[in-house]
Amino acid sequence: MSDITQAPIAAHAEERQVKLVKMASFGAGEKSTVVISIATALAILLLWWLVAALGVVPHLFLPRPDEVLTQIGVIYHDGYAGASLAEHVSASLFRIVVAALIAISAGIPLGLLMGLNRWAKGVLDAPIEFYWPLPPLAYLPLMIIWLGIGETSKITLLVLAMFAPICLSAQAGVRSLPIERVNAARSLGASRLQLFLDIVLPSALPEILTGIRIALGVGWSTLVAAELIASTRGIGFMIMSASQFLATDVVFVGIAIIAISAFTFSAAVRFLEAFLVPWKGKL
């Protein structure tokens, strides 16, 4: 009888001794870095203010942050170079959004095709790899000669800059697909369409979204070059026009607007990434 009563007690004692051990995270981990990022931004602003206030760099070349904020208000109320701030921003946003839509619409299907088909990869890989490392200013004259000085040449320049990262990321997403998933789906009788929609596309989606985020950054960095083509509106035009008159505060205003816009676009893609591929980085 004592053996029977002691057995449950011993079992309960062993259960109490069991401890859950959480594996140590690797890399940056899952903790938020918002506080660190805000503190870094404030430190950079403080350093900027100190350098400008102490005169380490001449005031003509480096205005104080408060002077840049004042200039934003001036441009907002009075405009710049014959256009309001809203007209400059909307012109740049129109070019970026249209170019991004074209680059995404063409880059994702072609990238998936290159990952799935040997002939498509052989035909498309060489020209993409050839032109992608070229800076946009290198083929800017060709855009002007071939397409004129209208919106077509500006948007085409942005499309070329944004297309390659999206296409190559889609291809990389397909090629990184574990063959075990494909074989498992085939063994369960999946058709080619089901294999593509349920296995290939979801597996490539994280790489595709990363490519879109990179492409948007490239597009914003190319914007200044695109708006060199006989523009009268746009943030890039505003920056180049102000630099010719050494209006450094206006240049900083344009840089700040591009940075905020690019950050907003990147944050939107990150949000979409968290919604569409919540498993990324957790498997």
Rank of each mutant, 00 (worst) to 15 (best):
176 S>G: 09
236 G>L: 09
57 V>L: 07
265 F>I: 07
121 K>R: 15
243 S>W: 05
263 F>P: 01
19 K>A: 10
235 I>M: 06
238 M>N: 06
231 S>W: 02
71 Q>H: 10
27 G>A: 06
81 A>S: 14
114 M>N: 01
158 L>D: 08
39 A>G: 12
72 I>V: 15
170 A>C: 07
125 D>M: 13
78 D>K: 13
228 L>I: 09
104 I>E: 03
112 L>A: 04
61 F>C: 02
168 L>I: 12
137 L>K: 05
230 A>Y: 05
93 L>R: 02
186 R>H: 07
148 G>I: 11
162 M>C: 08
167 C>T: 15
264 T>M: 11
24 A>L: 11
230 A>R: 08
63 P>S: 06
281 G>S: 10
121 K>D: 15
27 G>H: 04
266 S>F: 15
112 L>P: 00
85 L>M: 13
248 T>F: 07
270 R>A: 13
199 I>L: 05
258 I>S: 09
100 A>S: 14
112 L>G: 01
17 Q>L: 09
162 M>T: 05
77 H>L: 14
173 G>M: 06
269 V>F: 13
226 A>H: 01
183 N>Q: 15
142 L>F: 09
121 K>Q: 12
131 Y>F: 15
18 V>K: 04
8 P>R: 02
216 L>C: 02
218 V>T: 10
139 Y>S: 05
100 A>L: 15
186 R>F: 08
94 F>P: 00
234 G>K: 04
241 S>P: 00
152 T>H: 04
231 S>Y: 02
13 A>S: 04
2 S>E: 08
105 S>Q: 02
93 L>H: 04
148 G>T: 09
238 M>Q: 06
201 L>F: 14
100 A>T: 12
190 A>T: 07
186 R>S: 02
13 A>V: 07
148 G>R: 13
31 K>Q: 09
187 S>Q: 10
200 V>C: 07
224 V>W: 01
48 W>N: 00
261 S>Q: 09
128 I>W: 06
244 Q>I: 08
99 A>F: 09
150 G>L: 07
210 T>F: 04
83 A>H: 14
191 S>E: 02
244 Q>M: 07
225 A>Q: 08
44 I>Y: 11
264 T>R: 01
209 L>T: 10
144 I>Q: 05
94 F>I: 10
146 W>D: 00
229 I>T: 07
178 P>V: 03
95 R>M: 11
246 L>W: 12
238 M>D: 08
155 I>P: 00
198 D>G: 11
114 M>R: 04
76 Y>C: 08
274 A>M: 13
20 L>R: 09
229 I>Q: 02
272 L>Q: 02
208 I>W: 00
153 S>D: 04
237 F>R: 02
279 W>D: 03
146 W>A: 12
138 A>P: 00
16 R>T: 03
109 P>W: 11
222 T>Q: 08
93 L>P: 03
266 S>G: 13
224 V>S: 08
51 V>W: 12
282 K>S: 05
228 L>S: 09
61 F>S: 08
15 E>M: 11
272 L>I: 10
13 A>H: 03
25 S>Q: 13
251 V>A: 03
239 I>K: 04
181 R>L: 15
65 P>Y: 14
274 A>N: 14
146 W>V: 14
281 G>I: 05
274 A>T: 10
